[in-house]
Write a protein that binds this DNA or RNA. Structure first.
Length: 413
DNA sequence: TCTGGGGTCCTAGGACCC
DNA sequence: TCTGGGGTCCTAGGACCC
């Protein structure tokens, strides 16, 4: 039906196995081979070790349920700084093999391997094996690796054998992989789209790619046409190798259990979230063009207000009064709110601020070593700095300093 | 999975303009 | 001041991801 050469492109996908839980097991040998769950601070599982999965524990399960099913399970609070260190180390290893690496999320990355057989004098399978071994040996966690001709196919390949799998799918074997993949397991096809496709008797990824182009173009939107092409072995998604350093927006929010109505508490929490979001924006040298505080009711409806700031600003206290008004206009007496939060968007590079991000974050390493003395014993090399990111360059003219003009609008859904 | 927190991209439709 | 056709910009909301 469609012909693809063996290796027109070579994309590797690397995926940490139960990453958060594995990181704890790597730093605490007592937890090796034991059921471990992370996320105790939020009352639900964010990662589940493979030992814990045997008991039927899954992501999102509430901690009290976990304790009931598996009393010997260790439930630990998340530690994102620790995850980040392992993550950076993992990416550094990958970058030592290929310069074209995309850090997709904290525990996943893509790499372009095309043309690497000669310099390494290894097959693609051997390169994949070497990367996997190096990560596993130096970090004490396991990873699954998939290698195929597009990002979508590499991602399917890495999830094909887990944990600690290595799966190669050259162009002429795509159909075998797709035939064994249910449509909802395809990257980018969620609950709604798979339910829709089921109505056309499309159950596997193979059923999907066998649909004619006209079907995909008329019945589905652009992203799904791209997925269709990717699954057929045609490269659509590029490796995004500028390291992840820019943001479109930043969100900070918190859910109350139980929901509350208390105006003072809600306002205080909201203000904290606004300050947190701005603080992160400043770390990345952004000015903020729009602030959107929101409250979410118990039935999951959002009530959002929007403050436009021109010129954009770096500190929320400049518009504190306006924020207060915005809050007052959405808060209603007698309604219980489950979440208060804030999203800031329309971020612009701030050329006036100093470049201070290049300093090594020694404090963090010291803290980690204090909390996890086993790092030293295991001789894990934390050569890369935690915040080693570049500031986004921008040539826009510098805004003149004047008080921001505010406009407020509301919406709810 | 009775629902945490943090993201991205796309599309439809309204406003506004010539 | 009756009205066609076409463009751009913006926003809300949907869908999806980890």
């Amino acid at each position: 039906m469609f012909q693809v050469r063996s290796w027109p492109n070579v994309i590797l996908h690397l995926d940490g196995d139960a990453f958060f839980a594995s990181v704890f097991q790597a730093t605490n040998p007592r937890l090796k081979g034991q059921p471990v769950v992370t996320g105790s601070e939020r009352g639900l599982a964010t990662a589940v070790s493979y030992e814990a999965r045997k008991y039927g524990i899954h992501r999102g399960m509430l901690t009290w349920q976990i304790r009931k099913i598996c009393p010997q399970c260790t439930i630990i609070p998340s530690d994102y700084e620790l995850y980040s260190l392992f993550s950076q180390k993992m990416f550094t290893i990958l970058k030592s093999f290929s310069p074209a690496v995309e850090e997709y999320s904290i525990d996943e990355a893509f790499a372009d391997l095309k043309g690497l057989r000669q310099p390494f004098n290894m097959s693609y399978q051997e390169i994949g094996r070497a990367i996997k071994n190096k990560v596993e040996n130096s970090l004490g966690i396991t990873v699954s690796v998939g290698i195929s001709v597009t990002k979508s196919l590499a991602k399917l390949a890495s999830s094909f054998r887990k944990p600690s799998g290595l799966t190669l799918v050259p162009g002429h074997e795509i159909e075998i992989l797709l035939g064994k993949t249910v449509i909802s397991d395809v990257w980018g096809i969620g609950e709604n789209t798979s339910a829709y496709l089921q109505k056309f008797r499309i159950k596997t990824a193979l059923d999907f790619v066998r649909q004619p182009e006209s079907f995909v173009k008329t019945r589905l939107s652009k992203p799904f046409f791209e997925i269709w092409r990717e699954l057929r072995g045609e490269k659509v998604y590029e490796i995004n190798d500028r390291s992840k350093q820019s943001y479109k927006g930043i969100t900070r929010s918190q859910t109350f259990t139980p929901s509350i109505n208390n105006k003072n508490i809600l306002w205080a929490r909201l203000l904290n979230h606004i300050e947190d979001a701005f603080s992160q924006a400043r770390q990345f040298h952004y000015l903020v063009g729009k602030v959107c505080p929101f409250l979410k009711t118990q039935d999951f409806h959002y009530h959002v207000t929007e403050l436009k700031l021109s010129p954009p600003i770096a500190y929320p206290y400049l518009v504190r009064e306006e924020l207060r008004h915005a809050f007052e206009s959405v808060w209603k007496k007698g309604i219980l709110y489950r979440t208060a939060g804030c999203r800031i968007t329309d971020l612009q590079a701030d050329e006036t601020s100093q470049m201070t991000l290049f300093t090594t974050d020694n404090l963090l390493e010291k803290k980690i070593k204090k909390v996890y003395p086993l790092y030293e014993a295991k001789k894990i090399d934390f050569g890369t700095t935690f915040f080693d990111r570049k500031t986004v360059e921008d040539n826009k003219p510098k805004p003149k300093l004047k008080l921001p003009v505010i406009s407020i609008s509301h919406s709810s859904s």
